[in-house]
């Protein structure tokens, strides 16, 4: 069992919701990322999702596009993202890390070389925004051989037939995209999400489902979380990193994460 499975299982056992927090690696500065990751964990994040900056992030909204551009201007490469993961691991052996990016960089690095290095640096899973299950075979096999998960997305437009295919290929958790659109553009509609997730669970069974897109604070998280196993918060944190002075970033992220953690824990019967 890898760190991701262990964490999600432990949360389920204590009936708590998972908080997955996203930041773009190398934004706004190379040295900002690892302290930001630790701060998020202190604030109560269960999973760290680390964005691999790409030149053409076609599924991302303005906040994460800008974060990618800043990171690329800082010269961040996929190898740097892996190095940051390793650095984080030296002080945190338990919190699962998932890398999120676009396929071309993983292809360029080479699936096999990437997976070997990612495992060594302590990565637990990968989300590839533009790789649907039909195209995932080779990468998935390499990841699985090294005990890492390929996390697949499900959208409001996903048909039951596709949901079944995705469920068969997915591991770790299923990432449900709460609305049709790009990251950070709208608010998640809890009722619509609830209805869709009930149907989705008939395909995904025991695999945890986390909801992302349009969850910016504790209130939004609390509305959506009852329907899911957890939530993903991204653009709101990226926005904080863009606005805060470098030295203030960890404190602000920690408090932002704690607000969401508190709202999620208020849902659980303790």
């Amino acid at each position: 069992m890898n760190r991701l499975a262990a964490r999600l299982q432990a949360l389920k056992a204590t009936r708590r919701k998972a908080l997955n927090t996203f930041v773009t690696a190398g934004d706004p500065a190379l040295e900002a990322t690892v302290p930001a990751m630790h701060a998020l964990v202190r604030g109560g994040a269960d999973i760290i999702e680390l964005g691999v900056p790409f030149s053409d992030p076609e599924a991302d909204g303005p906040a994460i596009q800008a974060a990618s551009e800043r990171a690329l201007a800082n010269g961040v490469r996929l190898a740097d993202v892996l190095r940051m993961t390793g650095e984080f691991r030296r002080r945190d052996a338990a919190t699962p890390i998932v890398l999120m990016g676009y396929l071309n960089q993983f292809l360029k690095y080479g699936y096999s070389a990437f997976c070997a290095r990612a495992q060594a640096e302590g990565v637990d899973g990968v989300i590839v925004v533009n790789m649907p299950p039909e195209e995932c075979g080779a990468f998935k096999a390499e990841l699985a051989a090294r005990h890492m998960d390929l996390i697949l997305l499900v959208a409001p437009t996903t048909t039951p037939r596709r949901a079944q295919v995705i469920a068969e290929h997915a591991s770790g958790f299923v990432y449900y995209v709460s609305y049709k659109g790009i990251t950070g553009a709208q608010q998640a509609d809890a009722d619509a999400v609830g209805a869709r997730l009930a149907a989705l669970r008939t395909h995904t069974g025991e695999l945890p489902v986390l909801v992302g897109f349009g969850i910016k604070d504790g209130a939004a998280a609390a509305r959506v979380a009852p329907h899911a196993d957890g939530v993903v918060v991204g653009s709101a944190l990226v926005q904080t990193m863009a606005e805060a002075p470098l030295r203030a970033i960890p404190v602000r992220l920690e408090s932002q994460a704690r607000d969401i953690r508190t709202a999620l824990d208020a849902l659980s019967p303790q």
Binding site: E135, L153, T157, V177
Partner: peptide, 12 residues
């Protein structure tokens, strides 16, 4: 070729 897009577009 193939189809390398976000899941939201696959159905369309």
């Amino acid at each position: 070729g193939g189809r390398f897009v976000a899941e939201t577009l696959m159905h369309a």
